[in-house]
């Protein structure tokens, strides 16, 4: 915890994204974007998430290019372990063939896991480095340089993932059942009688929209809370060290679990969407 902050300022500083927007006077950052509304963009979320996604795809692609069916290298064995794990889950949950589901699940799992693991980087490291860069590189006040390094604590990102999955749910529902079949499923379940159509529609639409919402909020909520606790622990002085350690150890479980849950629910939702009742 940097001493020149009050605790509230410190926490707020750590929970603010680096923002970029286009104003009348050109490209502006952070506080200048306060009323940019929807057309602002979180630079740190974008940079870290895309960076980690590219890292994941680069690593896997590098292995995939020189993949051998003989004795695998150690990194190939690792990649195959991950791929096999995801594939087993997809095969056991999603009945039917789809070239999309398994790679989708792999991307979601590894990407979210990598982004979640940013949570284990000590909370002050990246903001401090960013502050130095801002201060000495661009002559900014380090208090105005923001760096929220865990992309999954940004609701924009988790909601984007969930909306992507939601789009696929709609796509698969219509592809497998047709527009009419999909509408019929929404109207005639759970009560199979025409008089219940409005009730059914309300129930089913709530169910349908709850899915992406719960996906997005679960991941966001878990990661935001854990990041917040990390930041809170960082404010208590020397005793933060054992507490940090314990909280981090606990997150060795939580972080992969959240990535796994997001992946599993995606598979389940798509499986439900592509099955006829």
């Amino acid at each position: 915890m940097a001493s020149e902050y009050t605790t509230t300022e410190y926490i707020q500083h750590h929970l603010t994204n680096a923002t970029m927007c286009n104003t009348d006077t050109g490209i502006a950052f952070n506080k200048a974007c306060a009323d940019a509304g929807f057309w602002a963009i979180h630079v740190d979320t974008m940079a870290w998430s895309i960076g980690l996604g590219v890292l994941f795809l680069y690593f896997f692609r590098r292995i995939a290019k020189k993949v051998t069916t003989g004795v695998p290298t150690k990194s190939q064995a690792f990649v195959e372990l991950v791929v096999g794990f995801v594939n087993d889950n997809v095969v056991s949950t999603f009945h039917g063939r789809s070239a999309l589901i398994a790679p989708l699940a792999l991307t979601i799992f590894v990407w979210i896991l990598l982004m979640n693991l940013m949570d284990l980087v000590p909370v002050d490291v990246l903001p401090t480095i960013a502050g130095w860069v801002g201060q000495y590189g661009f002559g900014m006040d380090p208090h105005d340089v923001y760096m929220k390094a865990v992309p999954t604590t940004d609701l924009n990102l988790t909601l984007a993932l969930a909306l992507g999955v939601f789009a696929l749910i709609i796509f698969y529902s219509i592809k497998m059942k047709g527009v009419l079949g999909f509408a019929k499923e929404l109207s005639f379940t759970p009560f199979n009688h025409w008089a219940f159509i409005p009730v059914n529609l309300i129930l089913e639409l709530v169910t349908l929209f709850a899915r992406p919402l719960s996906l997005a909020l679960r991941l966001f909520g878990n990661l935001y809370a854990s990041e917040l606790i990390f930041i809170l622990i960082a404010t208590i002085g020397l005793w933060q060290l054992p507490l940090h350690f314990m909280w981090a150890v606990f997150h060795i479980l939580v972080l992969p679990l959240q990535a796994f849950i997001f992946m599993m629910l995606t598979i389940v939702y798509l499986s439900l969407a592509s099955e006829d009742h």
Binding site: N17, T19, A36, G37, F38, W39, A40, I41, H42, T45, M46, S49, I50, G53, F56, L57, L100, P103, L104, T107, W111, D154, L155, N156, L157, L159, A160, L161, L163, G164
Partner: peptide, 16 residues
């Protein structure tokens, strides 16, 4: 909420 959402959607789609 802001256009990060759209950027992430595009990134997600490209990654997948």
């Amino acid at each position: 909420m802001n256009s990060t959402l759209i950027g992430q959607l595009i990134a997600f789609a490209v990654f997948v």
